[in-house]
């Protein structure tokens, strides 16, 4: 892929949008639900503790896995769509 073509720019913008969206979820489940917003979620019980505790010890890790696979899947499709994938 060469230089500053219109498609190249669109591809990179699509990548940035995807990263931005993923990182919002990434921050929300860990720093949000797991730490700062935990007191607000304390009313939601889950197995002897609260939802915030679950996010801090399990939920955020499971979300991270889903985020990476989603990103890989979307990007690999985007590569093909814009013809920048490897043969």
């Amino acid at each position: 892929m060469s230089g500053h073509s219109y498609d190249a720019e669109k591809y990179w913008k699509a990548n940035l949008r995807l990263i931005f969206g993923s990182l919002i979820v990434w921050a929300l489940v860990s720093y949000g639900f797991g730490i700062v917003l935990r007191p607000m979620l304390s009313g939601i019980p889950i197995g002897g503790t609260d939802l915030g505790f679950w996010f801090a010890q399990q939920g955020s890790i499971l979300t991270f896995i889903a985020l990476i696979f989603h990103y890989a899947w979307r990007m690999n499709r985007l590569d093909k769509q814009f013809g920048v994938d490897e043969e």
Partner: peptide, 24 residues
């Protein structure tokens, strides 16, 4: 207890950054 959740999230959440910001 809960306070050490920082290790659990911190030592896994970095892979999201690797996957999207550096590795590829």
């Amino acid at each position: 207890g809960y306070a050490s959740s920082a290790y659990l999230m911190g030592w896994t959440g970095g892979y999201v950054l690797l996957a999207m910001l550096l590795a590829p």
